[in-house]
């Protein structure tokens, strides 16, 4: 492609933008509404994902030791657990600490459990976190095989249900976003088709006098990128304002763990910007081809 042609493509794109102000405005509005809806859906998905990741990472394995082990063999078991594939961290809770904790939960110092029961009924325990919470079942199995481990508990049944639910939430939100994107492509292509339709005679003439398909496409594609990015900018501005005011107002309610990481949010907004450009190009590409068939 020649430098002169590139200049021509940009000149034509800008000319067309300013010539069809109403259609440009309509396209920008369509794109920004689409991106806004997709953006909201993605934000909800991200935050839900964040929330369920947190839920999942709360899942841990508790391994109870046999009561008559020496402290060396308890330490040794700890070492063995650490060596199991997929174990992220372990936390040793000595039986005395466990008892204190229990006592505190039941209520007050004056009620001395140890005195009441004669001796500490609780075993030493290890709390085990998995690198991937989905591996807890198999890790729990491994831990259970170590001799000296009396019992392993990881919320069997509940954990499986939780993971099943979170998997479905993820799948459904992805499918939903994919459908939104498809709808957006269709809607944007239809709007852009109007703009191209207004210039069909010019395109037809260009074809008859020997211009190539790409020569005709480029200005429209540049126009599509510009319209898409402009539309995305509008929707990003709205989302930025809405989300930050949401964060400010909801800060106190810490049970809703909203994403505040600026790097995640920045990537999110940049992706929306790119999505605007891509939607503009796709819409143009889909719409223009039928006019080139001369």
């Amino acid at each position: 492609m020649r430098a002169g042609s590139i200049f021509y493509f940009f000149r034509e794109a800008f000319k067309s933008l300013s010539r069809n102000k109403l259609l440009s405005f309509a396209t920008i509005s369509t794109i920004s509404v689409c991106i806004l809806i997709i953006g909201i859906a993605v934000l909800i998905t991200l935050n839900t994902g964040n929330f369920i990741t947190q839920l999942e990472s709360d899942v841990e394995i508790v391994a109870y030791m046999d009561k008559d082990l020496t402290s060396e063999s308890v330490t040794d078991i700890g070492e063995q657990i650490k060596e199991i594939q997929g174990v992220k961290a372990i936390n040793f809770v000595p039986r005395d600490d466990a008892l204190k904790k229990l006592q505190k939960n039941i209520g007050g110092k004056e009620y001395d459990l140890k005195a009441t029961l004669g001796k500490n009924p609780l075993p030493d325990t290890y709390e085990i976190k998995a690198s991937n919470p989905h591996d807890v079942a198999s890790i729990a199995g491994e831990v259970g095989k170590i001799s000296g481990v009396y019992k392993v508990n990881y919320g069997k049944g509940f954990v499986e249900k939780l993971f099943n639910a979170t998997r479905w939430i993820r799948i459904i939100s992805l499918v939903f976003i994919a459908l939104l994107v498809l709808g957006a492509i269709f809607l944007i292509a239809t709007t852009i088709r109007l703009a191209i339709f207004a210039r069909r005679k010019e395109i037809y003439l260009m074809k008859l006098i020997g211009s190539t398909d790409w020569f005709i496409r480029w200005p429209f594609i540049i126009e599509g990128i510009l319209l898409g990015v402009l539309g995305a900018v509008v929707s990003i501005a709205i989302l930025l304002a809405a989300y930050s005011s949401l964060l400010n107002n909801i800060e106190t309610m810490s049970f809703l763990p909203l994403i505040t990481s600026s790097s995640i949010l920045r990537n999110f907004y940049l992706s929306l910007l790119a999505a605007g450009g891509v939607l503009g190009v796709l819409g143009t590409f889909i719409s223009i081809n039928r006019f080139l068939d001369v």
Binding site: S5, K201, L205, S211
Partner: peptide, 22 residues
């Protein structure tokens, strides 16, 4: 089949532009 929004010169030049003339 002249383009109404282009002048005489531009209409003629158009045929050269679309075939990539410099």
């Amino acid at each position: 089949k002249l383009l109404e929004n282009k002048t005489v010169s531009e209409n003629v030049a158009f045929a050269m532009e679309v075939v990539g003339a410099n």
